[in-house]
Each structure stands twice: as C-alpha cells, then as structure tokens.
Design a protein around this nucleic acid. Sequence first.
DNA 1: GTTAGCATGTAAGGAGTTACATGATTTT
DNA 2: AAAATCATGTAACTCCTTACATGCTAAC
Lengths: 203, 203
Amino acid sequence: MRSRSDVLELAILGLLQDTPMHGYELRKRLNVMLGSFRALSYGSLYPALRSMADRGLITVAGSSEPLPHALSGKRSRNVYELTADGKEHLAEALTSSGPTAWDDEGFDVRFALFAQTDVETRLRILEGRRTRLAERLDQLRTSAARTRERVDEYTLELHRHGLEQVEREVAWLDGLIDRERDSGRTSKRRHPASRRTDGSESS
Amino acid sequence: MRSRSDVLELAILGLLQDTPMHGYELRKRLNVMLGSFRALSYGSLYPALRSMADRGLITVAGSSEPLPHALSGKRSRNVYELTADGKEHLAEALTSSGPTAWDDEGFDVRFALFAQTDVETRLRILEGRRTRLAERLDQLRTSAARTRERVDEYTLELHRHGLEQVEREVAWLDGLIDRERDSGRTSKRRHPASRRTDGSESS
DNA sequence: GTTAGCATGTAAGGAGTTACATGATTTT
DNA sequence: AAAATCATGTAACTCCTTACATGCTAAC
C-alpha cells in the first residue's frame, strides 16, 4: 500500500537481480540510476531494506533468517540478495501499469532496468510513457490557449519552453520505440542489449 | 528557517504583489505558475497563509487584526494582501541567492515573477541558474566518463538523453541572457515586459 | 430547492532528509 | 596509531498530500 515508494523498491530489486550487494554500494548505484542529483539518504535506504527483508523479498547474508528484528551482535557488511519471491515481485512490477509506472521517476527506473526485460515489456513501458506525455502536452496546450491574454511575456516564455522540452521527450521516445520494434522484428524475445555503444542514429 | 518552503512563500508573495486575492484563486494561479502538473493542495496553502499572516507579511481582509488565531465566526472569502513587510521580504527574496534560489522550482518561480523585477535582478537570476546547470553538466559528464564501461546500453542512453536536456536548458538560458543584456543596454532599469506577445523569434 | 462549484480549513499520515550515533577496515 | 572512508543504523523533523468536515453562492 505504499504507492509512491514502489519506485525505490523497484530500483533496489532491479539492482540486486544484477548482483547481490550491501547497502552502501547499493546506495551509490541507486544515486547513479535515479539521476545523480538527489542523493538518496541512508535514512531512506536502510528502513526500506529492512521492510523488504521482513516481507521476504530479499535475504541478508550472515543471518539467513528472515531478520528477526534483532541484529546478531556484530556490525559489518550486510549483503542483500533477491529471493524467489523478490524475483517474482520484480517481474510483476516491471510489467504492471501501476499508478507510478509512467511518471518521471518511475519511468527512469524502469528504463534503466531495460537490459533485464524483453522487447514486449520495453515497448509497453515506452508507449505508456509516451501516452502519459502526450496527455501532459494536451493539458499544457489547452491551458496555454486559455490563459494567453492574461499573463505576461515571461510566464509565456516559461510555458513555451516547458512545452518544447516535453515535445523533445516525446520525439526521443518515438525514436526508441522505432528501434525496439525493429529489434523485435529481427529477433523475437531476445535481448538486443549488445548494440554499438556509440548509438549513431542519423535522425 | 523553513528553507524549502521559501519557494511557496515567494510564489504567494509574488502573486499578491500583482493583486490581492483570496486563497482559492491564489491556488489556481499557483498551479499555473508552478508548472500545472503537481497541483498544490489546500492542506499546504492555507497553513502557509496562516503562518505568513502571523509573521505580518500579509493581512487578511475582513479582520484587519494580525489574525489572533480565532476566526471571527463567519466563514467566507478571505482576501489576502501584502503588507509593507511583505513587500520588503519579497524584494529581498527575489534578489537573494539563498540555498533554493537556483534549483528547478526556485528558478521557475523567480522567472515567472520577472515582470516585477529590473534587468539587473533578472540577469543575476539567469546567470546563477546557468552556473548551477553548468555544474550539473560537469558532474554528469564526469560520472559518465567514470562509469562508461560498467553500464549497459540503456542506462547509457538515459544518461545521454539527460545530458542533452540539460544542454538545451543552458542554451535556452543563453538566449534569454542575451536578450536581457540587449534590453538593459537600450533602456537601463526599465521594464521591457510589454513586448509583442506572439514572440516571433525566427531562429 | 437542490445540485454544482466556490471557499476555507483540520487531522492523519506518507516519504524522505538531516543529524546523530556507532563500529569496521583501509590507508598513510 | 591516526585519519580517512567504508558501513550501518535511529530519531526527530519537514514538507507535503489525502481525506475529511464545513459552509456559502450561483444556476437550473
């Protein structure tokens, strides 16, 4: 029922599927993943890990019990690892179109995890995000038309620029969708994550 | 001491300088100003207004006393208006380079209030924001160089795109800075807010 | 006269940050 | 052996949203 913090959990699960890790390391990768500004604090991370361990999504190495709330005594690297339940949860979360699936953060995390998904999932996520942005665009254009007369030049310029940024975002998504459709046609359900890194798309 | 919520207060003060208003109306304009997604709730707005009234930045019409915590009995439109203190506070806040001055929200609000400022202030804000974004760019490029090998193609693409968006933001700011410098040269300290609304810049 | 929208507020709680408190390991 | 950095955690606090509760005013 924690609808917003799903994003953090998803990111954690995604990173742990790649490889088991302890919290400190996890945090660094999380910060890269979530956009590098906005450093996630330990005050968020550790309680989240605790909660996930309590729910059986991950295990803590050293004490393989379901973490009975009392630390064994020593205090050192706790290595976290996905359980079968955790993997299932991750797969569901990646596929589902929950309430936080298409907003900025939710999308970024899902996108960063694309290497672990199949073409169908990727396309669903990209298209869902595109739809969401198109709605936003509509909204912005409508509200612009309504308020055209009543606002000063600067406010107008701010809105114009915001609109442009969203338009570019949509164009970017369109490019990605095309690429995925191509790769989907060539090799159904395969991971095409090993393309050239320099990504030379001539428009 | 409320360092983050300065932004909300600044926005309120800015709108009230334009014209006195009651809360409901204020909220609608605030939502346009702050980007239209992310609707500010009454649960944020009214307590903020109360606090600002308590501190003497604004007055409430109908009961011109400093709001002695007990409403008079009736319940209807409370019209808020800036006090001299409030105007001073606003001027300071617009000029100052506080901790929240250059982040996304802080900048947007200050920009939306440009019509009420002079060229010097506008230039300081635009340049401050540009510096902040340039730092971000540096950071992103550095971290990209450090992690180039260790991340998959999708994460890379996400970073590339993020970088591009910030670069565009900087280019936008450069254009605005040029325009302000021109208008500053032509007419020192005058408000050039009465340009053509259709903004035909053929570029 | 009743629905819809205007208008104001409060209480509870979610999500995260800061600041604190502690201990282990590596580097100098 | 001191300093730096790795590593884990908690408590208090902030800011905001949701959901609720209330009453006024215009339209039909």
